[in-house]
Amino acid sequence: MRILAERTRHVHGLAHSQLFETRPGVADNHGRIIAAGLEEVEIITAGKAFFAHGGREHVLGPGAICWHLAGERTVHRADPRDPYHCVVVGFRVSGPAPHRPPRLTLPADGADSRAFALQIFSAWCSGGGDRDLLAGHAYLGLLWRAVRAPAATAGAPPAELRRALDELDRRHAEPLQVVDVATAAGVSVAHLHLLMRRHLRSTPWQELAARRLAAARQLLATTDQPVAGIGAAVGWPDPVHFGRIFRQREGLSPGAWRRRHRLG
């Protein structure tokens, strides 16, 4: 209870809550340095980001929580083929945090932290209710999700996993099978699934789909190629199948996404 009271006194309110997304083809958005009197939490909601912590660079997927104190730099490195989206929640605070929240955590249930962050953003945008109560709910809810998850630790990803990801990067537009990726990595299919669950909280199919979708978004945003041709170019020759997967992941049809995000 003493720690809870210290946390409650430390937070003076919500400074902001917003959605942020990187654009296709952008690898570094330079980030920001958190100003004095603020703490900021970024919760990845889609795509892929990279963040150096604990002596290594971590791959961040949906649900990852990054907690920044004053003077620290926000997430800034993106996968240009799979741009990340995040909810940003800023808190006004008094002085240093009484207990340092984990800088980076990778919750086992990424869907839960993602849904909670979107709930906070929606409540902030609605403008109703008690803002002080919302600030306390947001801070303690994010803190609970951060501390109950295993903190990101040092250590490079296994060489087998790096080989698998390299193979996906090189051949994602081909009619690739999971066994092909496992063979390139030098492991069994079952062990490949284990590696991806343990280190990426993902599956080979999800990693393949993420690369194809990222390539599709880039082509939609930067070219005049027909949608069906883009689907075929990234590895989904059936336009109906391509459209279904794209809508499931992006919430829009490829054509609607292009109209909203077209560059130039």
Rank of each mutant, 00 (worst) to 15 (best):
I3V: 14
A5H: 15
T8E: 14
Q18V: 00
Q18R: 10
L19D: 11
T22I: 11
P24S: 08
D28N: 14
D28P: 05
H58G: 09
V59R: 15
L60D: 03
P62C: 12
A64N: 11
P83S: 00
V88C: 08
V89R: 09
G90P: 01
G90F: 02
S94I: 07
G95W: 09
R100A: 12
P101L: 09
A108W: 12
G110R: 01
R114K: 05
A117D: 01
Q119V: 05
I120L: 07
S126E: 11
Y139R: 05
G141L: 10
W144F: 04
R148E: 12
A152E: 13
P157V: 08
E160M: 03
L165D: 13
L168Y: 08
E174C: 04
A182I: 05
R197Y: 00
H199Q: 06
T203P: 07
W205A: 14
E207K: 02
A209K: 11
A210H: 13
A215D: 15
R217G: 03
T222K: 02
T223N: 08
D224M: 12
G229P: 12
I230K: 05
V234E: 08
W236F: 15
G243Y: 05
R244W: 09
R244L: 13
I245W: 06
G255I: 01
R259M: 02
R260P: 02
